[in-house]
Simulated assay, not measured.
Amino acid sequence: MLIRVEIPVDAAGIDRLLRKAFARDDEADLVQQLREDGLLTLGIVATDDEGGVVGYAAFTPVDVQGEDRQWVALAPLAVEDSLRRQGIAEKLVYEGLDALNEFGYATVVVLGSPQYYQRFGFKPAAEHNLHCRWPQSEQTFQLYVLAEDALEGVSGLVAYPPHFDRF
């Protein structure tokens, strides 16, 4: 198993993984459109011994109150069904957080299970008067701070690219 930054040759494998993992086309179509529009800040893949993509984490830029503050969203995160519960998703997330920190990003947001993401250090965004556009997401919208001053003077709407409007 190799965890690394995605390269162009991984695109087809990422597409297959996302279509299978989510049993629908939405996430695969989303990643493809984000990639085409230059809105994938970072993609991390897990590959098997033959180089096949078996895990994927995507990171996309988000704005805070209409301002680019070097924040990104983690979405989607997927692992091949037969390999789940083996720590692959955890390795993808940690590799992404490490790389984003090295690249100078300030904060990562995620919309997902608090029980799952709190293990990485994600905290409720609502504690900092931050929210996203989706109703009923106060408990599931979380953030992970990479830069010490990332939350200074920040509150309000964290806006995802319009590509996410279908969700």
Rank of each mutant, 00 (worst) to 15 (best):
L34Y: 03
L39E: 12
L40K: 03
L40C: 10
T41Q: 12
L42I: 12
G43R: 01
G43L: 08
T47V: 15
D48I: 09
D49F: 07
D49H: 09
G52W: 09
V54W: 08
Y56H: 12
Y56S: 15
A57R: 03
T60I: 15
P61Y: 14
V62L: 04
V62Q: 05
D63F: 14
V64I: 13
V64K: 05
Q65H: 14
E67P: 14
Q70W: 11
Q70H: 13
Q70M: 13
A75D: 10
A75R: 00
V79F: 07
E80W: 05
D81N: 14
L83V: 01
Q86P: 03
G87T: 10
K91G: 08
V93R: 00
Y94I: 13
G96E: 08
L100C: 10
E102M: 03
A106Q: 03
V108N: 00
L111I: 11
Q115P: 07
Y117H: 03
N129K: 15
H131N: 06
C132F: 08
C132Q: 07
W134K: 10
Q136I: 02
Q136K: 12
T140M: 14
L143A: 01
L143E: 01
L143H: 07
A147L: 06
L151A: 06
E152N: 13
E152H: 11
G153F: 04
V154Q: 08
S155N: 15
S155Y: 13
L157N: 05
A159M: 14
P161V: 06
P161Y: 11
P161N: 07
P162S: 08
